[in-house]
Structures are given as C-alpha cells and as structure tokens.
Design a protein around this nucleic acid. Structure first.
Lengths: 288, 288
DNA sequence: TTTGAGCCTCATTTTTTCTGACCCTAATAT
DNA sequence: ATATTAGGGTCAGAAAAAATGAGGCTCAAA
C-alpha cells in the first residue's frame, strides 16, 4: 500500500468556536463571556486561526474588532453548524436523562415565581427532576444546556402574562399611605435592573412625587426588606403575588401599570409531547 | 450583580466528534482512522462522554461496538452538524486562499493522468496553485480539506470516462504477441487493487489463458516495468494514454473491455463560477 | 487450537488551552 | 487637558485535555 497520507491536520474546533462567537457577538470580550474564558484566550484562538489560514479574520481597532470580508462570508455557515451542534447536544442530554428538566431563569423569577410553584409541580409530576439555574441574562438556548427559559422580555412569544407594576408594602405601613403623595415621606425601594419603575408608575399616577430610597441588586432582597417594613417597593405582579396572597404584603393603591414587557417562558427545541420538558412547560403555562 | 452562574461546562467538542465518527463508521477502530488518532483515544473520549451523560452510547461486544438507542437517536443530528462545520471550514479555507485548489487522487491517477495535464493547466491558469494529495481511498469531502476528488468508482456522477482495460507492452515485446494465447508465454503484470483485470479481459477475449506474473501495489511502478520490457500490463485507458501517445507503450491486441466503473472527478461544495476550483474542474473535464 | 480483529486500561508524554498580570490605544467623561 | 474606561494584545507559566504505547481481554472464524 505504501502511500501514507501525511495528514494535513484540520483546524481546531475550539478555535473555530471562538471565532464564531467573536464574529457573531461582534467582539472578543463578548465572546469570552459567552464561552466562559478570558479575553486572552479568544485572542489567542483567533490569532492561531488567522495564522494557519494565512488571512485576517478581524480588523483590529482600538475600540473593538471588525469582521473582515472573509470572516463575514463564512460566519453564517459556522453559526448554523454550531447551532446544529448545540441542539444535537441538547437532544443527546435529553435522551440520556429523559426525566430531568433544566430551567434558566432570572434570579427573582426563580425564587419568587418558580419556587412557590415547585411543590405543586412535584406533586403532579413526581418522576420529573427539575434543576433551576439563575442568571441575569437569557442564555442562548441553541447553545447553553437549558431546556426552558423564564425571563421578562419584549418578545410576545411564550408570554405568560404582561408585566404589571404597582407599589407594595407591609400591612402596617399601608395605613400611612392614603395618596401617592404620601410616598414622598417613606423610603421607596427599587431594583437596579428596573430603575425606571417608580418614574413610570408616578407618571401614570399623575402624582408629583420623587420617590427616593435604596436600590437593590437582588429583587428578592428588596422584597424581604419590604416585608420587614423597610419601605415601599415597586412590585412586579408575578414577583409579589405570593406575598400578597399570604398577606405579608399589601397594595396600598389601586393603580396598576401594565408595562410593554411580558413574563416569558420559552424553549428552543420542539419537545416530544409527553416528554418531561413539555410537561413542565405546559404545567407552568396552565398554573400561571 | 452578584449572581455568578457556576457555568455547567458543556461537552468537549473533540469527544463529540469522536462519538460521531465512531457511530457513523460503526466502530472505534474506523473512527480512529478517520480522525488520525489511536483507538485508545476514541475509547477515552466516548467513555468520558458516557460518564458525563450518565448513559451508555455503545454496547461493547468482543468484536466491535453497537450503537445504543440513545446513540442512534442523536447520530443524525451530530453528523449533520459536523458536516456543516466541515463545509464551513472548507469555505473558509477557500475564502482565505482563493487561488489554491486541493485535489485528492488515487496515486496512479495523480501520476499518470493528472500530472501530464498539469503543465497545460498551469499555462491556462497561471494564477492558480494546485496541490495534489495521493491516497488509496476517496476522502469524505464534507470533512477532509480537499476541493476535488479524482478516483475510480461506480457512481456515474462526475464521470469523465468509463474505465476501459486492454493489455499494453513495450513495442519490442508486441512483436511476439500475435494472439491472446501468446500471453501464456510472457509475464503478465497486474496491480494489487485490480487483481481481476486479467480474468475479465481474458474471458472477454475468449482466450484460454492463465496469465501469471508479478503483482504491484503501485500501478505507476507496473507501468515503468512494462515500459522497460518486463512484461505485459493490463492497461487502464486513462492511465496508459500518455505512454501510448508517446509510443513507449503499445496495445498488441484490439480488444478493449469496458468496465462498470468510471474515472470520476467530483466535488462536494458548489463553487462560485469563476472560482479557482471550478475553473480547474471545468478544464479537467474538457481536457479529458 | 490458534489467530486476529476490536476494544479496554493505565501510566506517561505531548499538546492544547487558559490564566493572570501588565501594556497599548482611542473615545468619552471630568 | 487630563482621567477614565472599554476593548485588545502579549507573554510566561500553569492547568487541563488529548494522545500514545504497551499489554490484556474476548469472541468468532480459520
């Protein structure tokens, strides 16, 4: 036989993935975030790719990178391929562990909306094991290992309910609040990701108030403080519903403002009907 | 922000590729061949995948492996994804080096059919750089870094000409050969991959001869020996054409037998018209 | 039996990948 | 004009992943 082919070794998959992420997200920093490595690793990968190709994939400028024509031409192909790979991995995970459902959720939604529903869900589907991962930003479901996402968003697809806000406080404090103007005399708690809440509600209430108070980075913490009587919190309906139901919190005013965003529960793949993921999704939609 | 997502690290791409190859090819040994690593590496990859999934992907038997239901269910997705990735890499390579064409060819075709045509091709397309890699088996063009493949095969797609065989020898020897029966008195050279050639031709010639002679593993070597008068070679038209044209070899008999296979030149991707690869392919088709 | 194909194991080596610390540049904020 | 900051680049060292190579096992076919 003799003819031994001196294998021209192919491009490293990791480097290709780094390139795809950087190109798709428009920067090495963003790519390093998505892939969970340091920016230097992305730099190195792209550099090695460019070296073995003999062509530049990005133009480097001082404030970021810009895809070259070459990079631009091939990006769609890579994105499609890696999407396909991600989906295949998801499918594989599901086949391997058919009764486990992974949910990605906003921390506050995980604790204040999802968590209270879990006991009932477990009762209905004791065979399903549910894992919840909290994160600030919705993951790319084509890539990250989650079956369902639960976040607030503009997109109406998968919307469970419109986001509705209104002030809430401990029952004791509600007594002091006769009109919106009274808000000027108490602390108005707010969340760092929803800094506009008070402004929006005040405007709708046509109240001339300048709510002031501490800003929390964890909504759950703000809720706890409110329960403890620390002040008035701008409540998001889905997040305070259970505390309202239990009486720990009350709504001192009637005005509720509907925002443009919705509470959304969505998936990427199409689950077989009867699969754990589809059962969980359906139950959550029905018990909203 | 606080909420630091403890990244649930995703499955290693290399291991997934190993799984895909093993599943598609039906064995670890074959996969290790395709990926150019030792079988032990495949074993390890699959094992680590199975460990992190918590499910078996293959049933191991003493004489090979058998894909499980889980593996079977996800294989098509992975194959499609890796095919897409391979194609994207090819496209990338072409974008990066637009005027280089990589051809994979049977060693004999590379030397005896392609090589004689290269000077004329270079004259017509001096801007194109051509690289030829010889191998026994056609590569998977969706994965391996070649633009064109040149081999013999059953598939009529891309066929340039039917494979036609007939005895050839040096002019001096031809004088001794009046009828096929005379072949019994000379050495009949053959190639190890085409051991049936003599049988097929003899049957067509209705000659009662039992050709005997040395078997070569490289057809080119057999041709050289024939030119040197070592014996009679069963010639494949495409491979001996130039020696016939130069008079170094002659066909002592008129009978030519057309085989079921063809000389094939094919590609996997669709090249832009005017691209180097498409120009080379077209020229070779026209100058056949 | 013997042989051989195919897979497994494991210690060791090689290669790849990542980090961490520091430098650079340009646009924006002060 | 100065900070400041966002986005990259570089490099040496460290860590992790991948691959090797030598020996073993099992079963089927010769």
């Amino acid at each position: 036989m003799a003819v031994a082919p001196p294998r021209p070794k192919d491009l490293p998959l990791t480097a290709l993935r780094a390139f795809e992420a950087a190109a798709r997200l428009g920067g090495f920093a963003a790519a390093s975030q998505e892939l969970g490595v340091t920016p230097g690793a992305i730099t190195a990968h792209v550099k090695s790719l460019e070296a073995s190709l003999g062509a530049k994939l990005f133009e480097r400028t001082a404030r970021g990178v810009q895809l070259t024509a070459v990079g631009d031409a091939v990006l769609p192909g890579f994105t499609a391929a890696f999407d396909g790979l991600g989906l295949a991995v998801q499918t594989l995970r599901n086949e391997a562990a058919p009764s486990t459902v992974h949910i990605a959720a906003l921390p506050s939604l995980a604790q204040l909306w999802l968590s209270p529903r879990l006991p009932a869900l477990r009762a209905v589907a004791p065979d399903i094991s549910i894992s919840i991962t909290a994160m600030e930003t919705p993951p790319n479901l084509k890539r990250a290992p989650y079956d369902l996402s639960l976040f607030y968003g503009d997109d109406p697809r998968g919307a469970l309910a419109r986001d509705v806000i209104f002030p809430v406080c401990a029952p004791a404090m509600a007594a002091k609040l006769k009109s919106p103007e009274d808000l000027s005399h108490v602390l108005c708690l707010s969340d760092s990701t929803w800094t506009d809440d008070w402004t929006i509600w005040s405007r709708a209430a046509q109240a001339d108030v300048k709510p002031r108070g501490p800003v929390f980075s964890l909504y759950t913490l703000a809720v706890e403080e409110t329960v403890n009587g620390a002040g008035v919190l701008m409540g998001h309906e889905a997040l305070v519903a259970s505390h309202l139901a239990s009486g720990e919190l009350v709504a001192p005013f009637d005005l509720k403002v509907q925002l443009g965003t919705s509470l959304r529960l969505w998936s990427q793949r199409h689950f077989k009907s009867g699969s754990a993921a589809s059962r969980v999704m359906q139950w959550l939609q029905e018990n909203n």
